[in-house]
Computed example of a mutant assay.
Amino acid sequence: MTDTQTVKIEADAVHRVVIEYCTQCRWLPRAAWLAQELLTTFETELTELSLKPGTGGVFVVRVNDEVVWDRREQGFPEPTAVKRLVRDRVAPDKSLGHSEK
């Protein structure tokens, strides 16, 4: 495979993030804020980011259907922690700048 083919495959890659949040707990603002942070950081790497209403205290972040953060196991995430997890899956070579320190 040539470098051009590799770049084309990476450019065509679908990177989908879903943030599922509890409507009963009124966690939409928290989910929307995290979505904004991810979209700002990964504006060219993400092909889709969606907010999925749920119930029962759910707050889960998935990247390409893989759970990377679950509030029930890890508590509420700091944006930098989620950014690192998303970066590792969609753009491993991307620097997160001051968030890396």
Rank of each mutant, 00 (worst) to 15 (best):
P92D: 05
P77M: 14
W33H: 10
F42L: 07
E43W: 05
H98D: 10
D3Q: 07
R26W: 13
K94S: 04
L96S: 11
E20R: 15
T47S: 15
H98N: 03
K52C: 10
A81L: 14
K8L: 03
R62W: 08
T4P: 00
A11K: 09
R71K: 13
P79L: 01
W69S: 04
V68G: 06
C22Y: 05
E78G: 03
P77G: 07
L38E: 01
E43I: 09
V58L: 07
V86Q: 06
T41G: 02
T44H: 11
L38G: 01
R62N: 08
F76H: 13
E20K: 14
P77R: 11
V63H: 03
V86K: 06
P29H: 13
C25S: 15
G97N: 10
E48W: 03
L34Q: 08
Q74I: 00
D65G: 00
W33Q: 13
D3A: 09
T44F: 01
A35R: 11
P29G: 14
A32I: 00
K94E: 05
H15S: 12
C25V: 10
V68F: 02
G54M: 02
T6V: 14
C22K: 06
A81V: 11
K94M: 15
K8I: 04
K101F: 14
V68W: 03
T2A: 01
R87N: 06
G57Q: 03
